[in-house]
Each structure stands twice: as structure tokens, then as C-alpha cells.
Amino acid sequence: MTGADRPILELDEVSAAYGPYRALFGVSFSVARGAVVALLGPNGAGKSTVARVASGLVPASSGSVRVDGRDVAGEPAWRIARFGLAHVPEGRGVFDSLSVEENLVLSFQRRGGRGQISASLAQAYERFPLLKERRQDRAGTLSGGQQRLLSLAKVLVVPPKVLIVDELSLGLAPGVVDDVYAGLADVRRKGTALVVVEQQVDRALALASSAVVLERGTVAYYGPPSGARAAVEEVVDRRARGRAQAASS
């Protein structure tokens, strides 16, 4: 497999743990260039851990992670980021103590190159006028949704090779969610592959080219988006039955 048909991100039998607490057990899937993978599953299934292992925040205890064909298991997060993988973490993903503009500059100066900073800034402000309004304010004074917007603006303006977004629409106003999905479709057209962790299952599946459903740290379903809905319901159902059993025994 060479060049264009090589997947941009591949996880092969990946396991991971937080100290003594194990979170992933042999997770495998791959993301083709320009593809969109929806990562689904109930709370605690390991979605965020998959994102963190891919970006190097949590080391894989076994298995391999390949970005653009290069094995990155054991590499520090900053090197993986330079290979072209961007990870927008769940919740707050901005520096509270820096201003909105400093947050953007910090991101653009590494990923876009120094000469591009002012052009990228102008583009970000044009697309998200709210950020322009608040550009001198400390990012910590923004609301949760606005902070989310700021962390997405960084990656939507300078698209990486592969983008992992954790809990994409959580905390965003419905109108803003539409904007963000439009932005994602846009970067996808520019060739960015996407991994989307999403609560709004239907919305993610509409964008996705394939889906992965996780259940207690293992892959319960991996295939086209059409079958994912049923798989998610099955997993949730199984969990509810397990709870009911635990409660009755």
C-alpha cells in the first residue's frame, strides 16, 4: 500500500490504561484519506481514550497507532501533532489565561507557518465574528460554548491532515452546531480526514463514511454508517439489561 490509498490513521489492536485502570482492550479501525469516521458508544465506552491514544496524550500499553503510515506509538503528543494530527479535546480546549487572539496565534504559528499568521487570523475573525469582538479578552472569560468555538476555529481555519473532535456539539447552541458542521464539511473538501465523537448520533452518521461503535473498551461494530444506529441501540440495550440484572441480584 503506497501513497494515496494508504489510510491516514490506523489503530491496530490498541489497549490503554490510566494507571491500574484499564480502558481499552484491542481496539482496531482505520481512517482513509478524506474519510469521516463517527466514533459512537455510551458513556465510559472509551471514546475519549481512543482520541487521546491517537493524539499521544495517553500512551498505548500495546498495539500500534499509525499516522500516515508512520508508527507513532510511544511518540510524544507534540511530535504526533507535527505529523499533521489535530485533537480538539472534550470540554474546554483553550488557554484560559491567554487572550482570544493569543490562543489563535499560538496555534497558527506552529501549524500555519509564521508568514500565514495574520492571514489566518483575518480568516478566523471573518468566519466567527464573535471571536473578533472578544479578541482582547482573556479566553477564560468566554462562555463554555464560546470557548468550544474558539478551539474549533483554530483547526477549521488551518486544516490538519487528520482531525479528531471529541464531543463535537456538546455545549454549543443549535445555530452554532450548524456552522461547525458546515465548517467540517468544508475542511473535508480540502482533504482533511475526520474522526468525530458525537452525542447527536444521527447528525454524525449523516456526515460519516464509516462508523465505530465502542462498548466497554472494545469495538462492538465497525462498518458503514447505515448499520451503526442499530448497533448503538443494541449496546445501550445490553447495558440497561446488565444494570437491571445487577440491581435485582
Binding site: G56, L57, A77, W78, A86, F95, S97, L98, L106
Partner: peptide, 18 residues
């Protein structure tokens, strides 16, 4: 700028490739 960012969250800074 990177020094001030590193104080708040080294991990978030690493995600920016630093």
C-alpha cells in the same frame, strides 16, 4: 507566548505541536 501557555496546560500546548 508558549511559556505562558505551558504554565496553564503543557498537554494542551503539546496538541499544538509544541
Amino acid at each position: 507566548l508558549e511559556m505562558r501557555a505551558a504554565v496553564e496546560s503543557p498537554r494542551l500546548l503539546e496538541l499544538e505541536g509544541v
